[in-house]
Write a protein that binds this DNA or RNA. Structure first.
Lengths: 346, 346
DNA sequence: CTTAGCACTCTTGCCTTTCGAGTGCTAACC
DNA sequence: GGTTAGCACTCGAAAGGCAAGAGTGCTAAG
């Protein structure tokens, strides 16, 4: 896909984009001629640039200011031109160093991953916390906080801890809770949450007939505890890096971006899109269909545990981003923590 | 304390500060004379302003630009002039509305509180998560994730859930862990963490003599689980409000502030200062001794659970802040969630 | 002690000018 | 034919100048 361009047009588009990525300035025809790979005069380059503008790959801020890539331009570049670097030994070591010497539990591991991404890329790091539904049951516990309030604490195979407060209209004794806990832990051991939920529903129908009071309670509690209503959260780190980018010199724009960070909803939706995709996914500018972060690109990849896809992680930065070096960072980090999460649950 | 000023100087300082808070501009002598409370000519006001500048309460950005309060000026104002408003019915209802209709567990409650503070004040809300040490033990659970890894999940009286990954060199069976769990839950029920830790230490000494293998393990595990090394965290909400303030039009400054938000360390230290203090505490500009957030003020208050002080919460905004309306917001919110946390553990 | 008056200072906004970068077009060149 | 030198043109950025306005400090009179 992507419209076909002549070799020459492609080379010049590549040169313009790379120059723009390096300088953050609109690039003129003269700058291009100075590249060894282009053996043309500035006049010829101008002709090509004019064509590229007509077909929507470039745009000019004003008449006499050189040209900058459009989202379409970046898209073509990423899809058809870009050659992704491989990480060198040193970079890999640098990433791995973030995880050395610590027994990190799931939550901390994900936070550290977001930090790693942000530190390596000098942009903002994003890590989506796994949806409960995509995890495997390990352990559940009901702790009685007061006569009406029960805290359900729930641990997944990969060590993610979730908890939910349940208001119960009936006073269950410690002993009752213990029995419920034991029963549920035995019954649901090793099930995926999806399976567990199905089991609960079918059992609830049955138990109504059997009229076993305690079991009824057990299933009702576990149903609430495993309910996924809270729906996803995302860990954002390294937001201050955005201040370093000249394209974010605009306070109004920064405000909108940070509002988006705070609401998280929109980010979660964007990250969700990457759940199914294989490998690294690049969303450029308006493709995010979220005007609040226009001018930004999002590089994401899914990460996995033993039970399959857990979530996505990625980097948010300006569209003017050195894709060739950012993409492998996301790729390597995703596969690294996937490996860690798979090993973990042995 | 606070240097003594004549009534007149005090009135004029008050007028200048309130005018500056309202307009965000340097205020000149003429603006002051228009206030009904000041029955003086601009010339007289100028004389007083000159004195106030000499004694360090005011400063002028340049010769012909009116004057703005210094940190010392704000400090005097807050300590000796300010009359704090009371919240009206509507504001209280507004705050309470944030907590209606939801069974919020501890973590969510604190996050919601940070949101509430930020929404009510239009500045950034901060809530410190309680240090383990200042809480009461409720429940502990050890979940075996793999042969070497044990996840310790630990619930406090107020429903705060903490977890820690323990790498253990010995393969404990599920049955062992269950016994350990039961024993510890019985032994430590109702103790404060401080007491529990003391108990663990003394028992560990004893058990060495008694040579009970399982108990030794139990105490060693619980020691690690209750270790407070992670030390505090703070929930920050509403950072985007800062963009609305004219004094934060400076990108370089914003960057420093957001870096401070990311590191959190400095914020935690500042919030810690408010742990002992009774009532609302105001830190103005340079008093924070943290140049990164110079020009900011921090209004904090401690909040309580049944077992005493849990942590502090507050609002971060520009020094030019309507203290009279912000202080009661912090005050009321702190007492409101304290009440909720006390009730909770009945 | 207060205040009117006034000279002085400095910023702000606005206008003009200049400069330079970059373009598009045309005509000459290979 | 494609390619390129040359050139007029456009437009923004930077610099300078000017007037307006706000605010001050000082002085002298009330």
């Amino acid at each position: 896909m992507g419209p076909l361009l002549s070799d020459r047009s492609r080379d010049i588009l590549e040169a313009i984009i790379e120059e723009h990525i390096a300088t953050a300035e609109p690039v003129g025809s003269k700058a291009i001629t100075q590249r060894p790979s282009i053996g043309l005069s500035s006049a010829s380059v101008r002709n090509v640039m004019s064509e590229l503008e007509d077909s929507g790959f470039l745009t000019s801020p004003h008449t006499s200011a050189g040209r900058i890539p459009t989202d379409k331009g970046y898209r073509y570049y990423v899809d058809s031109v870009l050659k992704v670097n491989r990480l060198n030994r040193q970079q890999k070591t640098q990433i791995e160093a973030h995880y050395r010497n610590r027994g990190l539990q799931m939550g901390d591991l994900l936070r550290e991953t977001s930090r790693t991404l942000s530190a390596m890329a000098h942009y903002t790091g994003l890590v989506m916390i796994p949806r409960i539904k995509s995890t495997v049951f390990r352990h559940i516990e009901f702790v009685k906080l007061s006569s009406r309030k029960i805290l359900a604490v729930f641990v997944t195979q990969s060590g993610l801890v979730q908890n939910r407060l349940i208001e119960h209209d009936e006073d269950l004794s410690h002993h009752d809770l213990e029995q419920i806990t034991n029963y549920l832990n035995q019954t649901m051991a090793g099930l995926s949450i999806r399976e567990a939920q199905a089991l609960i529903l079918s059992q609830m129908a049955k138990e109504k007939a059997l009229y076993d009071h305690l079991l009824q309670r057990a299933f009702r509690l576990s149903q609430v505890a495993l309910d996924d209503a809270t729906g996803g959260d995302v860990i954002i780190e390294g937001t201050s890096h955005l201040f370093e980018q000249p394209e974010f010199n605009d306070l109004e724009r920064m405000k909108r971006i940070f509002q988006t960070f705070e609401q998280k909803r929109a980010l979660i939706n964007l990250l969700d899109l990457g759940l199914q995709a294989k490998g690294v996914r690049v969303l450029i500018g308006s493709e995010t269909e979220h005007s609040e972060i226009s001018g930004c690109s999002l590089i994401t990849s899914a990460y996995y545990g033993k039970a399959g896809t857990l979530g996505t992680l990625g980097i948010l930065g300006p569209s003017r981003m050195p894709y060739s070096s950012i993409i492998p960072i996301v790729d390597y980090t995703a596969s690294l923590i996937s490996r860690m999460l798979e090993d973990d649950s042995e």
